[in-house]
């Protein structure tokens, strides 16, 4: 699936997006997989209270299943307007 990062998560990880091969069943499991990869990922996912997730461009949450999901995005709380 495609995984996207925005704002300081993008900067911390050093990538705007990547293709991830995973069998993670939920967002929470995917986060655990990513955070275990490297220090930069661990740093980006260190405080999950500051991380929001969207599945196929709709706001979701950590316990949401990933079945059939094509695009996962991680980002901090929004600050537009």
């Amino acid at each position: 699936m495609k995984v996207l990062y925005f704002a300081w998560m993008r900067e911390r990880i050093g990538l705007p997006s990547e293709n991830v091969e995973t069998s993670a069943g939920t967002v929470r499991a995917l986060v655990a997989e990513l955070a275990a990869r490297e220090e930069r990922y661990a740093a980006a996912f260190a405080d999950m209270r500051a991380v929001r997730v969207a599945l196929d461009q709709k706001m979701s949450d950590l316990d949401a299943p990933l079945d059939g999901v094509r695009e996962v995005a991680f980002f901090p709380p929004m600050t537009g307007g």
Partner: peptide, 8 residues
């Protein structure tokens, strides 16, 4: 928009 539109 402030809390739901993905802008940073």
């Amino acid at each position: 928009l402030k809390t739901r539109a993905p802008f940073w």
